[in-house]
Computed example of a mutant assay.
Amino acid sequence: MSAEKITAESRTEFGKGAARRIRRADKVPAVIYGHGNDPIHVTLPGHDTWLALKHGGANALLELSFEGKTQLALTKQVQVDPIRRTLEHIDLVAVRKGEKVTVDIPVHLNGEAAPETLVVTENSVVSVEAEATHIPEWVEISIEGAEVGTMVLASDLVLPEGTSLLTDPETLIVNITNAPTAEEVEAELEEAEAEAGIEREDSDEDAESGESGEGESTEDGESAGE
């Protein structure tokens, strides 16, 4: 993973009011932690930072330039406004080239399992140790043609050279099971509704069936309901 170059600015204003002013200027307040130093407060350009995070994923590596120096930093926590989807705040961890870091990387599935199977992802991320400048964006698992009973453990993952697995090797990542039938899905739905205290309304078909049974004539021509 290559570092995304970002021009940052030192930040001397703090508090909610200052943060709002920073965001109105299309910038993002951020803090850099690590290496036993005091936290460094900076502002980052909003658009460029958003693109860098989109490209680098959850473990985006940034090369920050400010005050005439550069600093490699790994994304640790990103706060996003849930409505406007704008960056609110970013926590970063200072790193050095060649330094080993511990990160969680996502698991991506590739291919289609055998017909009438259900692919269950038991764990969507794994923890690894890798060089800060060579963090894999994800680890890929092929499930092409996988039959019922296929299980992929963490130990089965193929990681890039220089990356070590930290997750328990016996951790189940993917499990291929029988796809449920329509009857089984309906039974599970009814059970869940019963546990939640939800009562189903009669369907149109049931209602019509009930109505057709009302007022049936007897043998002598009189209505059964009379």
Rank of each mutant, 00 (worst) to 15 (best):
P180T: 08
V103K: 03
T181I: 05
K27P: 03
L165W: 02
I40Q: 09
A3T: 13
L44S: 03
I83T: 06
E13I: 02
A154E: 05
H47A: 07
A113V: 08
V174W: 02
E216M: 01
K5F: 08
T43N: 06
R200W: 06
G68M: 13
T163G: 01
G210F: 09
A192H: 07
T102S: 07
L53V: 02
H41F: 03
A114N: 01
K76R: 11
I40K: 11
A52H: 11
P82T: 04
S212F: 12
L118D: 14
P169A: 15
L87N: 12
A60P: 05
A58G: 05
I143L: 08
G162T: 05
P29A: 11
V185Q: 14
Q71K: 15
G15M: 02
D104R: 09
E116R: 08
V80I: 12
V139N: 14
A18W: 02
L64M: 02
L153K: 15
V158F: 09
I173Y: 02
A18P: 04
V158R: 15
A52W: 10
E205L: 10
E216I: 03
E205M: 09
L51V: 14
L157G: 04
V120R: 06
E188K: 14
N175G: 10
G221M: 04
K69Y: 08
D38P: 05
L61G: 11
S124P: 01
N175F: 02
R23T: 09
D91Q: 03
G56M: 02
E122H: 15
G34T: 03
R23S: 12
S212E: 07
G221S: 04
K69V: 12
V28A: 13
A94G: 05
P106M: 15
E201I: 02
T70M: 13
A52S: 09
G34R: 01
A30E: 06
L165A: 10
A132W: 05
V152C: 02
S209A: 07
N175I: 00
T12L: 02
E88R: 07
G34A: 09
G213I: 00
D206P: 01
E131P: 02
V125F: 09
L118W: 10
P29G: 10
T86Y: 04
H41A: 01
A182Q: 08
D202G: 08
E222P: 00
V125S: 11
E222K: 07
V185A: 14
A8N: 05
L157Q: 07
P106H: 15
Y33A: 01
A146P: 03
T171L: 03
E201H: 09
L109Y: 12
A113L: 11
